[in-house]
């Protein structure tokens, strides 16, 4: 095959692959990761605050979702649940699984960050007459989120790549579109490298955003600001 034909295949398919990236991969990541953060903050806080029953529930949730493969979780929800009458469309099913799975990992990052806030911060809050929840919301959580930002960014970048697994439950995201083009053109090497490059592009952009975010969040620490 000539170089010219390869080059034009590369150029033609670039937009075909990037488009589902913009309409599926990114929305899936953004929605699922936002939900994951909400789950993670709640799960981390009930452990940090030692709320009895909820703490056990939280440990159980983390145990299950960290301990089983993401792909298996996707299959159970999309192909398994219809057996008991629960039918979920591909995209919402992917959002559900990705947010629950990611929430389990992020919860641990946030819990570690909460525990890293010096105990004196809590005591100073009490002495100022604040309630536990006021101290958590205004003093502890903001400091913890700054500490948790790098590991959370890690999780976000991992998630962008993991969304390729959603192809297995018929979400037409970048990887599924690539597979279809490969089936028509028989150029697996070129096209899989190409989709890999697009994932790399997304990750690179996110890394840049992470750096900007860290700078903005760090006005109250020595490393940033000034």
């Amino acid at each position: 095959m000539s170089d010219g034909r390869l080059w034009s295949l590369f150029a033609d398919s670039f937009w075909k692959i990037l488009l589902p990236g913009l309409t599926m991969t990114i929305p899936l990541t953004v929605i699922a990761f936002s939900l994951a953060l909400v789950i993670a903050v709640c799960v981390a806080l009930v452990q940090f605050a030692n709320v009895r029953v909820f703490k056990q529930l939280a440990r159980f949730y983390i145990w299950v979702f960290r301990g089983t493969p993401l792909l298996v979780q996707l299959f159970v929800v999309f192909y398994g649940l219809p057996n008991v009458g629960v039918l979920i469309e591909p995209f919402p099913a992917a959002v559900l699984v990705f947010s629950l799975n990611e929430g389990a990992y992020c919860a641990e990052s946030i819990r570690a960050a909460l525990e890293a806030v010096p105990v004196g911060q809590m005591e100073a809050g009490y002495c100022a007459g604040m309630t536990y929840l006021q101290i958590i919301r205004r003093i502890i959580l903001p400091q913890a989120m700054r500490t948790a930002f790098p590991p959370l960014s890690n999780s976000l970048i991992a998630m962008v790549k993991d969304t390729s697994l959603a192809a297995n439950i018929t979400v037409t995201e970048m990887f599924m579109v690539t597979q279809r083009i490969v089936a028509r053109t028989y150029e697996p090497l070129l096209l899989y490298i190409e989709v890999g490059l697009i994932y790399l592009l997304f990750s690179t952009l996110l890394t840049g955003l992470q750096r900007m975010g860290e700078k903005r969040l760090s006005t109250h620490t020595k490393k940033g600001g000034e």
């Binding site: 004196g120 005591e123 100073a124 003093i139």
Partner: peptide, 13 residues
């Protein structure tokens, strides 16, 4: 009110 040995100012304020 309480003044601590190591100040314990709120670090994010």
């Amino acid at each position: 009110a309480f003044v601590f040995q190591n100040y314990n100012l709120f670090l994010n304020r």
